[in-house]
């Protein structure tokens, strides 16, 4: 199924999203309210940003399971910076991004220079980062984020006052999401290195033969993902107003699941920004629907696992089929493309 979706690009994904939404709306009409929509946006914005970062990685044929630990670490660094160094929000954002980039760079260097398989390299950095986070925080929440940052996080764009006096509007955090969408789209679509990301995901040998510096591309994508995670941490902390070192446990799986739901292949080369955003939407709508329908949350985890495994299975089965179809010998008197 996923392969087909991939071929006709994103349209079928949109249909899936609409059908699920209609289904949930019928069961629970409160799904279709503006309020619920804004809640959905706010609570899945970080997932969307991280998914775009992960898309870059998956496109090269890599994977980053350290993403959740990186955002946790950046959250801690951000919280400490705001509390003990400066209350300047802009400065804090720069620190967060730099921290993300450094951690991404380490992943990128391990993978490109030492040729450690991405899953192994990022599992290693994940464990190390989590260890350091635990050491510095003792697993305790960081509270006492300065008021100016909390106020910043509460800003809404186009505010509307509801009948009961509450004010709703588009959360300020979209100012992080939208540039990231534009940035990843621009990089992937309009830069030579972006097309190189696709090229090396499709056929790494040919990409090198063509002159792409694949090592540089790997370092670039992991650093860019680190930058995106840095911004995601700012968005997250401004929403939550405190830092919970355990908030992102297992979150990397949700991120990966959302990206593959959006049509990306774990073998590299396939996936798009639009598809990923739709994948995130489907993922969050299903989650939201489960909550609205009072389905226990452990089903979520099961669903995430199923999505990842079934998507990878489809990729692998497809690959095996292609290998079987490969003609080894040009047999005389045999129609070549009868199959």
């Amino acid at each position: 199924m996923f392969k087909k979706l991939r071929k006709v690009k994103e349209l079928p994904l949109i249909i899936v999203l609409v059908v699920i939404s209609i289904f949930i709306a019928i069961v629970n009409p409160s799904f279709l309210t503006v309020e619920n929509f804004l809640d959905l946006l706010k609570s899945n914005l970080v997932l969307a940003m991280m998914a775009l970062g992960m898309l870059l990685i998956l496109l090269t044929g890599g994977i980053d399971v350290s993403a959740a630990s990186v955002i946790t670490a950046v959250n801690v660094i951000l919280g400490q910076t705001l509390m003990h160094v400066t209350q300047n929000i802009l400065f804090a954002i720069v620190v967060a991004c730099a921290a993300g980039i450094i951690m991404g760079l380490i992943n990128g260097l391990l993978i490109s220079m030492l040729k450690i398989p991405p899953i192994v390299a990022t599992l290693g950095t994940m464990s190390m980062i989590l260890g350091i986070v635990l050491y510095t925080t003792n697993g305790n929440w960081i509270t006492g984020i300065p008021q100016n940052f909390i106020d910043f996080g509460r800003i809404v764009i186009l505010p509307r006052t509801l009948a009961d006096g509450r004010v709703i509007g588009i959360p300020i955090q979209v100012v992080f999401l939208i540039p990231i969408i534009v940035l990843t789209w621009f990089v992937l679509r309009h830069t030579v290195i972006g097309r190189g990301i696709y090229a090396m995901g499709g056929n790494i040998e040919s990409a090198e033969r063509m002159g792409f510096k694949t090592k540089r591309i790997i370092i670039f994508v992991y650093s860019l993902e680190g930058f995106i995670i840095g911004l995601s941490a700012v968005a997250h902390t401004s929403i939550m107003r405190q830092v919970d070192p355990n908030a992102f446990l297992g979150f990397e799986m949700q991120v990966i699941a959302a990206v593959v739901l959006g049509g990306a292949s774990t073998l590299g080369g396939y996936g798009s920004v639009l598809g990923t955003l739709i994948g995130v939407s489907i993922f969050s709508v299903i989650n939201n629907g489960m909550i609205l329908m009072r389905i226990p949350t452990f089903w979520q985890k099961i669903a995430v696992g199923l999505i990842i495994i079934s998507s990878i299975s489809v990729d692998m089965i497809q690959k095996q089929k292609e290998e079987k179809m490969k003609v080894c010998v040009d047999v005389e008197g045999e129609e070549l493309y009868a199959v």
Partner: peptide
């Protein structure tokens, strides 16, 4: 094998 990119 042509060295092409099937995904592009």
């Amino acid at each position: 094998d042509f060295s092409l990119f099937p995904n592009l």
